[in-house]
């Protein structure tokens, strides 16, 4: 791994962590007035994807999308302003935390229905296939998405048409409070079930950013060279409650040893400790990087909080478009 990539991955994870933890810290101010699903603890998968995807690759995501948006290069000011409900938000305050969009970097949208953007991502893959070239569509999904019908329908079509689509499954073992074993047969892991489609599949430790990067890099190369869709499963763990700024393990829905094991395996310190000991990263680099990130994140919150709310008449606007909109028309 080059020093640049090492820094890029550390930086990618730290940016996400800093944003999410700042949201958690400020949520009690009651100015972010929308459901907010944080990705603290799950930064590695997004950071690796961010290091590998181009702006011309088209990405969609679901309700827990901050990390994906940030990693893809989405405008941070516009995301924080969106969570604050301001007119400068990426969706002008219409969507909030669960509806992020920045088409200028190929983040085509995240929505709040589990599985809802999977076929949209496959449709983007169809459009890329039609245009030729080696850009890909990338769909972020959670473990519950593979329980939906629309996921299998969309995967079937992507396989049928050999579309350039990367499915990235972050398996954090819980859908809200419901553990995986009450939702899916566990004799086979998710990626093993998906392998039945005959596409490229792989799995890895989602808290080991170097491993994720290697697995993803291999899959993306295959897709870019015409190999068709690929499905990657990464196990990981969200630190905070399903939705909101708090820790909720006092409720006892996750076994203590599981919580201890996973929180001890913080993806950022795992990666940096190794890099520091190998000398590929210096503490001074980390400190400088964190300082820059803090400044960027604080500026984004300042931007959001000093932005105007949308005028009241916008509530009834945007129901219909009166002309084709968007960068690709």
């Amino acid at each position: 791994m080059t020093p640049e990539l090492t820094k890029s991955l550390a930086r990618g994870m730290r940016r996400i962590r800093t944003v999410e933890e700042t949201i958690a810290a400020r949520y009690r101010e009651q100015e972010m007035r929308c459901p907010t699903h944080l990705s603290s603890g799950q930064e590695a998968v997004s950071a690796a994807a961010g290091a590998l995807l181009r702006h011309s690759d088209l990405t969609v995501s679901g309700h827990r999308a901050h990390a994906h948006y940030i990693a893809k290069g989405g405008n941070l000011n516009a995301m924080i302003a969106e969570i604050y409900g301001r007119v400068t938000g990426c969706a002008r305050g219409k969507g909030g935390s669960m509806h992020l969009i920045d088409e200028t970097v190929g983040f085509m949208g995240s929505t709040a229905i589990v599985g809802g953007t999977v076929p949209v991502g496959v449709g983007l893959g169809y459009s890329l296939m039609m245009k030729g070239g080696d850009d890909i569509a990338c769909i972020f999904l959670g473990d519950a998405v593979v329980e939906t019908g629309v996921f299998h329908e969309a995967l079937n079509f992507a396989t049928l048409k050999n579309l350039p689509v990367l499915f990235i499954c972050e398996n954090n073992f819980y859908s809200v409070y419901s553990p995986l074993e009450v939702r899916q047969p566990t004799a086979r892991e998710i990626h093993e079930k998906i392998a039945g489609y005959g596409i490229h599949t792989a799995s890895g430790d989602g808290n080991d950013v170097a491993a994720v990067h290697a697995i993803m890099s291999d899959a993306i190369t295959k897709i870019r060279t015409g190999g068709g869709p690929a499905f990657l499963e990464f196990s990981t763990f969200r630190w905070r409650e399903h939705c909101g700024p708090n820790f909720d393990d006092d409720l006892g829905y996750r076994p203590d040893p599981m919580i201890e094991e996973w929180t001890a395996r913080d993806p950022i310190s795992l990666f940096e400790t190794k890099a520091l000991s190998k000398g590929s990263l210096k503490q001074a680099d980390i400190d400088a990087m964190q300082q820059e990130i803090d400044a960027e994140v604080n500026a984004a919150f300042d931007f959001a909080r000093s932005s105007d709310f949308p005028p009241a008449e916008e509530a009834a606007m945007h129901v219909f478009a009166d002309h084709m909109t968007g960068g690709m028309q």
């Binding site: 088209l58 969609v60 085509m108 949208g109 809802g116 953007t117 999977v118 076929p119 949209v120 991502g121 496959v122 449709g123 983007l124 893959g125 169809y126 459009s127 890329l128 039609m130 245009k131 569509a137 019908g149 629309v150 329908e153 969309a154 079937n156 079509f157 968007g326 690709m328 028309q329």
Partner: peptide, 14 residues
């Protein structure tokens, strides 16, 4: 359902 979503995605792709 998926083909409707695929139509939406293709529309977003131009």
């Amino acid at each position: 359902n998926a083909m409707t979503g695929i139509a939406i995605g293709a529309a977003l792709g131009g």
